[in-house]
Structures are given as C-alpha cells and as structure tokens.
Design a binder for these strands. Structure first.
Length: 789
DNA sequence: GCCTTGAAGTTACCG
DNA sequence: ACCGGTAACTTCAAGGCG
C-alpha cells in the first residue's frame, strides 16, 4: 500500500546481527503515529586512490583483507571540488564496519584519502534518498506485526525508500512541555544528593499536571512522570535548558532509584547523542533554550525573561522565585503552594515558547535536513554544513572531510567614521543579502578557485580587488548553485505570502520558512571562513569581503556624485541625507550597473552619532527610538545605567532639550544617593567565557563566580553571573558580590554606580553637548566632597 | 614608593 | 565550534619622578 508519512524522527538498529534497519517515525494524514522500516539500505564510504590505475588493485586488497565486513566494492567516478575523480565505493554490512574500516584502510598503500566515512547511518540514508525530516514523504510499504510493542498505531516495512511529496501542510503535533524542580538547600542541586521535588507537565491539549515528591522521596514522581508521558504519548517534548539540565538530572535520579526512564516510542530511555541533545526515539525532544539563544534583545535568557519578552507570560502576572531559594518554598508548608504556582507558570511559559519557536524549528529542519530534535542543538556552522551536504549529494559532489587547520585571518568589511552630532532626515540604504549575492555574482566557491600556480591565462576568471584571487566564471560553482537556490526559494515563498492572510496558519508556515531560508543564506559566508568547515577556503571568504569593500566604496562614490551626503556606513549600508529622487536614482544605477539591490531600510527623522563607529541612536519616522551599540542595548551594564541612557536619548531626540536631560540624570543620582533605587537595577551581568582557572586577569564577574562556588553553587563556562559592586577596599573585582548575597542598599558602593554607571552612560550622549561629570553630580554631593577636604 | 600610561585581557556589540 | 571590525571597561606592569 502507498503511505504518506510526515517524518518526525529517524533512527536505526541492527537486527539479526547483520541487517541494518532504518526506522522512520512519523505521522500519517489521518493522524496515526506509525513507524516505517527499511532493511534495504547498507552503509558505505569512499576511498580515493592516489592514481586511478591503482583502483582495481586496492579493491582486491580490500576484499581479501576485509571480505567479512565488505559487501561490495564499486569503482566509479565522482566529482570532488568540481573535478571528476575515480573512487572506490565500499559498501559494508553494518554501520559499525564503516567505523572499523575507515582508519585501517588508510594504511593500505596507494590510498590518498577516505571520504564520507564519518556520516551517521540514518543521515546517510536521508542524504542518499533525498528524504527530509519535518516533510511529507510517500512510501510503498506493507504493514508488519508490532513485535517489539512500540508505542505506535502501526509498523510498516518499506518496499523501497520513500519519495519526497509535494504536500506542504504540517500535521497537528501533540506537544508536551515539562520542567523539574530540585531540592537545593546546599546550592546548585546535585542528583547524587538532592531529590527532585516537583515535576510539571503541560500539553497543547490543555493538560496541566503538577507532580509532588513524597517529602524528599522522588521515586513515585519519577514513576508517575514516566507513566504520564507514555499515556499522553506526545510527538514533541519541550523543555527549557532540558538537554543541559532536566534530562541529565532525571536520568541520574532514575538510575539511582533503579528505574528505567522508558518514555520513547520504542520503550527506551532518552539517550545523549550528537550536538549534546537527548534523543527520545519516535518523538522529537526539543530544548527551546537553543532557540531563545538567538533572541539578542533578551540579555539574560531565563525562561521568565524570554517568555516576558515574547508576550507568552508577563513577569508581573506570574510567580517569581529566586532559584537558589526553591528549597525554602518546599520546606515551608505555607509557601509550598507558591512553588506549585511557580512551576505551573514555568511549564505554561515553556509551552507558550514552543508555539513561538517550533514553527521556525520545523522549517529549519526541513531545509537543512537535520532531524527536528537536532536542528536546535546544532550550531549555526553545522546547520549550514548540513544544508551544503544535502546539495553536494544531490549534485554528485563528494563531501570533504573535516580537518584541523592552522589559525588564519583575513580582512573583513569597511566601517566609515561617522560625522558626530545630530543629523536630520537620514535614510539608511542597505544592500539585500550582500555577501550571498556577491558570492553568486563573482562565482566565489572552493571549486571555482584558480590558484596563481594553475593559472595559464586562457581561463575566463573574475579577479578580486585588493587580494587578486581568481575564480572561474563558469561553470556555476558549488556556493553559487546552493545560494541561488536559497535566494530563489525565499523569493518564491515571499511572493506566495503576499496572497495569504497574515495570521492564518498557512501564512505562519511560509513566514517561518522564508525566515529560515534567510538565516541559512546569510550564515553561509561566515561558514566559508570558519576554520572548522568542511568547505573552508580562506580565499573564498577573503574574496567575498574584498568585493564587499569594493562594492560599498563604489556605492559611496556614486552616492556623492549624485549629490547625496553620506554620514556613515557599515559593511553593506550607507546613511545619507534623504533625497528621494536621488536615492531612487542610486537604487536604479546599482541595480543596472552592479546587478545588486540597495534600498532604504530605515528612515530617521533625527539620528545622533558620537565619534565612535557602530554606536548611534535615532528617532524613526514612525516615532520609535532606535538604539544601536550603545550601553542601553548592552547586557553588561546595570539596568539603571541603561535606563538612564535610554531616557537621555529620548529627551535629546524627541525634545532636543539638554537641560531637561541633565535635570533628569541629576534626579536619578539623588534617588540613588537616598537609597530609592531597587537593588535589582544595580545588577551587572557578564558571561563566564572560559574555564575559571584559565583567567589571567582579576575580572569582576570571575571574582563573583568564585564567591558563588565557595557557597556551593555551580558556575560553568557559558553561564552569566549577576553581581553588584559593594562597598569596600581593593580592586573593583574584589567588590563584585553575587547579587543573591546582597540584601541591602547599604552594602552597595553608591559612588561606583554614580560615577561609573549612571554618569558614564549619560555622558556618552551628553558630552557632545558640552556636559561634563560635575554638571551631573548634584550640589549636595559636591558640597559633601568639599566638606571632606 | 607613588603616580601615570599604555598594553593586555575581557566582553559584547554591529553588520 | 560562523566571520572580521569595533568600543569600552578593568587590570597590571613598566616607566618616570623624587
């Protein structure tokens, strides 16, 4: 029978010792949860002989030595960086044999390279058969008995691999959000010491469950959790930071209590896998934190902050509990209900975030081809790489190995020195997808590169400005083909969007799709200059930025020739005094002469620059204030300093009243002096960017982190530490105290907050208008300093 | 021994 | 574990001065 399958998850196992069985877990159009098996596919890899003539001999050696593992050896032709080469394709019985052979085979004389031997079997299957997760696939299959008692409506055996289908809808997925709370009287909870005290579950079908431990015995809630997940049988399980915390903790506790966390559709435990995610067979386990990380507007990415920012659950409409004190709410019978409410708010927030992030995750998965549970935990580089691998396979190009490379840099983009002060009526003209379009235009790709050694003068090449690298004009390079497809696909999706009702489910799907396409296109340049990339080529990255500099310089010259006054520019944008006719003319010439698109992106009624590059603020024509690069948008300044700068900017841009801005700042300083500013606004957050032992300098956040560790808390690389500067002597770093240890404003070094936070962030703007520190510090304070002397 | 200065270390931003 | 360009902070050691 023919079967349509929306692919949710894919796995494999080896049956009868030597048959690899691909398992495609998915959903049918009538809403059944099924698994389709395919036993017809075998793993393989390639061997590149030093000379094509050696191929036959190598094949003989391979078969003689490893005949028990090798099914067959084919000598065939493939493309490698655009060139046709002869390779041996070695098909093995089971995936483990590829791993076994790939290192041993290298020892055989006459072998230049081993390729595609590091690709997971189920990815190999999807790659070769052009099967995409989170997409519809059609397969000819027959139903077989559910021998293993998997949690599905039916098991099918495929007669041949599925084919991608045209259907674009997304089936209704059953989503389960969960969160755990642990007992933590001694700092960060440890699974070998501290039990789980509560587990919360929420589903998109309205279920809300709060499980509670029997005092400090968590055996029953873990059992109940397992039973509940199985009963609800979700397609997607979401958590917040679940791959780095909840699953590890749950598995650890379960192991200690000698129970199995068998919640997968194959009745197995979550298992840690590639990119650090936990795989739950037959379901998609998605850690929403991975997607929250991309929200640069939220600086401290706690669940509360992210949910608040996205309007999922406002902070003032929920229970907030300081994480370190959770145990107190458990121990105190009067407070325990608050903890329950807190957990309920958390799981509802998590569920709410899934509505915000899953549509994008699904599109990303269907574009780059990584399963839904992996696509979030894979870094940007790996997402781009899988997208490239998909296309390489389709184009018959061999996939290069990941190799270690020595450190190397190259020149990047141009940033213009801004003209300081206030400018009125400024248009920001932006190139659309500049780097991808330049890579397409000049056919910049590893396979079209012509080294000076190889260049004989007869080839038609583009020569890059400044750096002189050459790239063949034809045929189309790998990056050109891939990027063209991406940009064209995005264009097509966007034109479809125009005919849809914003707010409709179809609109949402396509909107997220075009967004995912854009993200991948824009990250491809960065990828090609990444030392860890399979398709790394310094010349490719270097040439792209060289053409970028050339293009923006030409654009500036042209703009000036047309009589446009250029006040600033960065990489792919120029800020000009807005004259519609001249801007239209510029746009037209760039389109006709360069084949690139430049258009007004934003228009500022007024915009303010200091001497610094990459930092400015402006009043947009729609009345909104835009702050770029300044303290107000940085995560490593106190809320107070940011708020002050924001208000100052607002007063200057909207009212143009320096005196009022000064009054405002002085008022804030008075409040600070009289203890009327809440401690929460004084916290400074900074990321621990490396292992604590590796720090050479005594930095404030590191010192605060050490104080946390002293008190039993765990601080890992990548964590953000929040601290307050308290009174005392010595270096600033000595006075950095984790905020949870500060409970009174009397402990705070008010002087620091005045001079190094409020005044500095205010003067960043006001200095241009002739204001200095002593204008901002109130008379009372000055008097007190005088008195002191 | 104290103060100034500039390099180094560090983070987070822009596009 | 995506790039380079940039600003800005604190620390720290060297250099200058007396």
């Amino acid at each position: 029978m023919k079967l349509d399958l929306w692919l949710l998850d894919i796995s494999y196992d080896v049956i009868n010792k030597d048959i690899p069985e691909i398992r495609m877990w998915g959903i049918t159009p009538d809403g059944r949860r099924v698994v389709v098996l395919d036993r017809s596919f075998r793993p393989y890899f390639y061997v590149v002989p030093k000379t094509p003539e050696d191929a036959g001999k190598i094949a003989e050696v391979l078969k003689r030595r490893y005949g028990d593992r090798i099914l067959k050896v084919d000598i065939t032709d493939r493309k490698y960086f655009g060139r046709s080469i002869t390779v041996l394709r070695i098909t093995c019985k089971i995936p483990a044999h590829v791993k076994f052979l790939r290192d041993r085979v290298k020892e055989i004389p006459g072998i230049a390279d081993v390729l595609e031997a590091d690709i997971r079997f189920y990815m190999r299957y999807m790659l070769d058969n052009n099967i995409y997760p989170c997409s519809w696939n059609t397969v000819e299959a027959e139903e077989v008995p559910n021998k293993e008692n998997w949690q599905v409506d039916a098991v099918y055996l495929a007669k041949q691999p599925p084919l991608r289908s045209e259907r674009e809808d997304i089936p209704k997925l059953k989503v389960l959000a969960f969160d755990i709370e642990c007992y933590n009287p001694r700092g960060t909870p440890k699974p070998d010491r501290d039990p789980i005290i509560m587990i919360g579950i929420a589903t998109n079908e309205g279920d809300r469950v709060i499980l509670k431990a029997d005092d400090l015995n968590d055996l029953n809630i873990i059992r109940e959790f397992i039973a509940l997940v199985r009963k609800i049988d979700p397609d997607v399980i979401v958590g917040y930071n679940s791959n780095r915390f909840d699953w590890i903790y749950l598995l650890n506790r379960a192991r200690r209590l000698k129970i199995k966390l068998n919640i997968s559709r194959a009745n197995s435990e979550p298992a840690q896998s590639v990119y650090g995610h936990f795989s739950i067979l037959g379901r998609a386990n998605v850690d929403l934190y991975d997607f929250a990380e991309e929200l640069t507007e939220v600086k401290v990415k706690t669940l509360e902050n992210v949910a608040d920012y996205l309007g999922v659950k406002k902070k003032n409409e929920r229970v907030l509990i300081e994480g370190a004190y959770i145990y107190k709410y458990w121990d105190d019978p009067d407070k325990r209900s608050q903890l329950e409410k807190y957990l309920l708010d958390d799981i509802e927030s998590t569920l709410g975030l899934s509505e915000k992030f899953l549509p994008f995750a699904i599109q990303l998965s269907s574009i780059v081809g990584l399963p839904l549970d992996q696509v979030g935990s894979a870094s940007v580089g790996f997402r781009v790489e899988w997208h490239l691998m998909r296309h390489a396979c389709e184009l018959g190009e061999l996939i290069p190995n990941r190799i270690e490379r020595p450190y190397a840099t190259y020149k990047g983009a141009i940033v213009l020195r801004p003209k300081p002060g206030i400018h009125e009526n400024i248009a920001v003209l932006d190139f659309s997808s500049m780097y991808p379009n330049l890579m397409i235009k000049y056919n910049i790709s590893p396979d079209t590169y012509v080294s000076p050694m190889d260049y004989r003068g007869e080839e038609d090449v583009y020569v890059a400005p400044e750096v002189g690298h050459m790239f063949r004009k034809y045929p189309d390079g790998f990056y050109r083909r891939v990027l063209k497809r991406l940009l064209e696909a995005r264009k097509a999706v966007r034109s479809k969007l125009k005919d849809l009702e914003p707010g409709s489910p179809e609109y949402r799907v396509l909107y997220e799709r075009q967004r995912a396409l854009k993200v991948i296109a824009n990250a491809t340049y960065g990828y090609c200059g990444w030392l860890g990339a399979r398709w790394y080529k310094r010349e490719v990255a270097e040439t792209t930025t060289a053409w970028g500099r050339h293009t923006i310089r030409d654009t500036i010259d042209l703009a000036r020739k047309l009589g446009l006054r250029v006040i600033y520019g960065d990489t792919d944008s120029i800020f000009v005094v807005y004259d519609k006719a001249k801007v239209d003319e510029l746009t037209r010439i760039i389109r006709d002469k360069l084949g690139l698109e430049i258009k007004p992106d934003k228009i500022y009624t007024r915009v303010f620059f200091t001497e610094a590059k990459k930092r400015y603020c402006g009043l947009l024509t729609d009345g909104r204030i835009d702050v770029v690069g300044l303290e107000a948008v940085r995560g490593d300044w106190s809320e107070l300093a940011k708020e002050v700068q924001e208000k100052v900017i607002e007063i200057i841009l909207r009212e143009n009243r320096v005196d009022r801005a000064v009054d405002y700042v002085r008022d804030v300083i008075r409040k600070l002096e009289s203890g009327k500013i809440p401690l929460s606004k004084l916290i400074i957050w900074k990321t621990i960017g490396k292992e604590l032992e590796e720090y050479e300098a005594a930095a404030a956040h590191v010192s605060a982190a050490r104080k946390l560790i002293e008190a039993g808390f765990k601080v890992d690389k990548g964590d953000k530490v929040g601290y307050i500067i308290v009174r005392g002597s010595g270096r600033l770093s000595d006075k950095a105290m984790p905020y949870i240890f500060v409970d009174s404003i009397d402990q705070v070094d008010i002087e620091y907050y005045i001079k190094k936070q409020v005044v500095i962030s205010a003067l960043r703007i006001l200095e241009y208008f002739g204001i200095r520190e002593d204008h901002l510090i109130s008379e009372k304070r000055q008097a007190s300093i005088l008195d002191f002397f």
